[in-house]
Nucleic acid binder design. Structure first.
Lengths: 105, 105
DNA sequence: ACCATATTTCTGGAATTATCGAAATAACGT
DNA sequence: ACGTTATTTCGATAATTCCAGAAATATGGT
């Protein structure tokens, strides 16, 4: 994953409302959760919710499948795993530091 | 880590410039990197850089230590580890899903 | 075709963020 | 105290984000 993509994903998750949406979808598991269920659960205006969901869909963290009149949202585990992978590899553990120190030595 | 804190951390990292700053500090390792070195490396106006660094410091992702006239910035590994821990536990692996399913059963 | 439900798009305003140059501050050496 | 280097704060502007009400669209049932 490239840095700019990682930043886009982090920005999408970097809003309490969107992070709650995403967490709710994770907790919903494979069955996903309809937009309407999310709306009941999180108590935010439908238009606002729609915008936030869209922001998550655009970066690929969430996917949607239509079931008749309702849209089921699913968390995309793979994208999140890639993001965490980026953070761990480039921005988290001291392995980056160690590697750098070794390269300098 | 609470959700709002996690969101604040994610937002801080969710900007390409700030993510580059943070990554540079990780790569610098334990020695850290002076603000001036970051400025040379990233080629952004000192005032802009100062603002971005401050955003990272406020959420605890970066710490600063003064060395005479220069300020050395350090990445705070522990905070990043907490953030990744939150993501993995609550927002990443399907363990959250499984746990939820078990609780519901 | 019409109605009902679910969701999105449009619109607009308030608040926040990004950016930079210029001036101010901090800390040191002399 | 003065000058130098390093960094931040101030001030201003452009761009973006957040929020929600109203209208529009999508889908299915009758």
């Amino acid at each position: 994953m490239k840095l700019d993509d990682a930043a886009a994903h982090l920005e999408a998750l970097g809003n309490p409302t969107r992070l709650k949406i995403y967490r709710a979808l994770i907790r919903a598991g494979g069955a996903g959760l309809a937009v309407g269920r999310l709306q009941e659960k999180l108590k935010i205006a439908p238009s606002t919710l729609s915008h936030h969901i869209k922001a998550l869909v655009v970066v690929g963290l969430v996917t949607q499948v239509r079931d008749a009149t309702t849209l089921i949202c699913h968390a995309n585990y793979e994208v999140m795993r890639e993001l965490v992978g980026f953070l761990v590899a480039e921005c988290c553990t001291e392995s980056a530091e160690t590697k750098n120190a070794k390269a300098a030595a």
